[in-house]
Design a protein around this nucleic acid. Structure first.
Length: 483
RNA sequence: CGGGAUGUGGCGCAGCCUGGUAGCGCACCUGACUGGGGGUCAGGGGGCCGCCGGUUCGAAUCCGGCCAUCCCGACCA
């Protein structure tokens, strides 16, 4: 690998050359995940799982702060329960895994491995809820689910994946609606602040709605290849599940009513989103807030460096750790500094700290940013403060860069010819007036592969006609080609 | 699930057409010299050639089936 490919040599397919291959190369070469012997199922490796744990912590604290508590429901759901809600079963039955035998004995009733937990939650909520005083019931669970997908990709779509699913029950429709929107807001805040991922929030069209929901809201992000990725959903379930699972309560006015419910989820797909949103030709770029290592220390070995440089590097590691920075000291003697630079860039560490004899002489270290590769000396005395500051700056810079990219790739179009022409390339989001009819959406998809990703809630007043048909426009829609 | 492609040490590939001792680069191990952008030299280890079956004296190579992965479509967090 000593041939000249420019200053930054890489063993992965350049992102600019083949986005899909680049993505798969990064996932494996950065040791985020690996294929398993089971079709469509990946192993999340320690480095990838550490990212997930950081995401979990950031989400979980937000759930707790909004009054939710965690619980755990069973993996198996009896077939009859899944079948209770008609739209729900229709949506999920084609992609569930069935358990037909226990040991060698055939089961009297087949079980499904949960594709989502509304059904089992519904049964339990019916037992637990009696009175308006039991409401609202605000639960979340961290779990795995299984959906028998036909086409899979690591993190973005796998047969089994990890997620959180919130399930809440409320006295009134208004409260359920408020909850669904509140959690959408939590997701948006999490994505933007922790993942440096600007998102479009809005309602889903009828055809993209969750099976069994009254309304589905989502946040959508634009990836590095200008395709949209749904990274979180929040559903207002109305009384659909309450009616089939008989979840009732006695209200303040003594009447017996069905509860109003919501559910909402984010999954390990987020990791795929972070990869595709921020990465570059050299590999992964992790936002500091979800980086397992925020700083990697590379000691520059010279002479008896283990006695001279290494103790300094260890002291810096301890100092930064004490300042609540996640630090990795790469003291391996078998690799050269240049090799380590490339390696940790590939793995997306936001900040690199170099320390060698020259630095020690001058009581300084070198800091190099992953996002823009700026390199600057920092006095030892200011180190901890400067590192914290730089990590914040990198987090913000990644968001700003992504925001700018999103803005540049969001186009307003009113004429269908122009719409079709634009969609032939990689336009990102195309914002257009839309009649709201499912048939029209299907026609647009057939013509352009683009679908309605999001219908902003408080969009401007719409006038004129649908971008495709003669019907009057009902709303402004965000169209995109999606993952 | 349809169309296409690919499976050979950890990774990337050659060998297959024309059957006869399994190769290359990188990575890995040991040692020495090195070290501020993927070091050099010397020595070394590792492969049921995706799986099952068939043809053959003999199969990585020919034939059939299956599985997995990738790309393009139809379905989805």
């Amino acid at each position: 690998m000593s041939d000249k490919k420019g200053a930054f040599v890489t063993e992965i397919t350049p992102r600019s050359e083949d986005f899909s291959r680049w993505y798969l190369d990064v996932v494996r070469r950065a040791e985020l995940a690996d294929y398993s012997p089971v079709k469509g199922c990946m192993v999340i490796r320690p480095y990838g799982y550490a990212i997930w744990e950081l995401m979990q912590q950031a989400l979980d604290s937000r759930f707790k702060a909004t009054g939710h508590v965690n619980a755990y429901f069973p993996l198996f759901i009896p077939e009859s329960l899944l079948r209770k809600e008609a739209a729900h079963v229709e949506g999920f039955a084609p992609q569930v895994a069935w358990v037909t035998h226990g040991g060698s004995e055939e089961l009297e009733e087949r079980l499904v491995v949960r594709p989502t937990s509304e059904a089992i939650v519904g049964v339990m909520y019916a037992k637990w809820i009696q009175s308006w005083r039991d409401l609202p019931l605000l639960l979340n669970q961290w779990a795995n689910v299984v959906r028998w997908e036909k086409v899979t990709r690591p993190f973005l779509r796998t047969t089994e994946f990890l997620w959180q699913e919130g399930h809440t029950a409320h006295e009134t429709e208004a409260e359920a609606e408020e909850e669904a929107l509140r959690m959408l807001g939590v997701y948006k805040d999490f994505a933007e602040r922790e993942l440096a991922m600007p998102v479009i929030e809005g309602r889903k069209s009828e055809s993209e709605k969750f099976a069994g929901a009254v309304r589905t809201y989502s946040i959508e992000a634009l990836m590095g290849d200008a395709r949209a990725l749904q990274i979180g959903t929040s559903h207002h379930l109305g009384q659909n599940f309450a009616k089939v699972f008989d979840i009732t309560f006695q209200a303040r006015d003594k009447s017996v009513q069905h509860v109003w419910q919501t559910s909402w989820g984010m999954s390990t797909r987020l990791i795929g989103g972070v990869i595709m949103m921020h990465g570059d030709d050299s590999g992964l770029i992790l936002p500091p807030n979800v980086a397992p290592y925020q700083v990697v220390i590379v000691p520059i070995p010279r002479g008896n460096w283990q006695e001279t440089v290494l103790p300094q590097a260890e002291a810096i590691r301890d100092e930064l750790t004490a300042a609540c920075v996640r630090v990795k000291l790469d003291a391996r003697d078998a690799y050269t500094p240049g090799w380590k630079f490339a390696e940790w860039e590939l793995r997306g560490v936001p900040l690199r700290l170099e320390i060698g004899p020259r630095d020690i002489e001058q009581s300084q270290v070198m800091l190099v940013r992953r996002d823009n590769r700026e390199k600057a000396p920092v006095a030892r005395a200011q180190l901890a403060a400067r590192v914290s500051q730089l990590l914040r700056e990198i987090q913000q810079a990644l968001f700003d860069r992504a925001r700018q990219c999103l803005d540049e790739r969001t186009t307003r179009i009113d004429a269908y010819d122009e719409f079709k022409q634009t969609m032939e390339g990689r336009p990102g989001f195309v914002v257009a007036p839309w009649c709201g009819q499912t048939a029209c959406e299907a026609a647009i998809k057939a013509d352009t592969q683009a679908t309605v990703r999001s219908l902003p809630m408080n969009g401007a007043d719409v006038t004129g006609q649908c971008v495709r048909c003669d019907a009057p426009a009902r709303e402004v829609a965000y169209f995109a080609k999606a993952y």
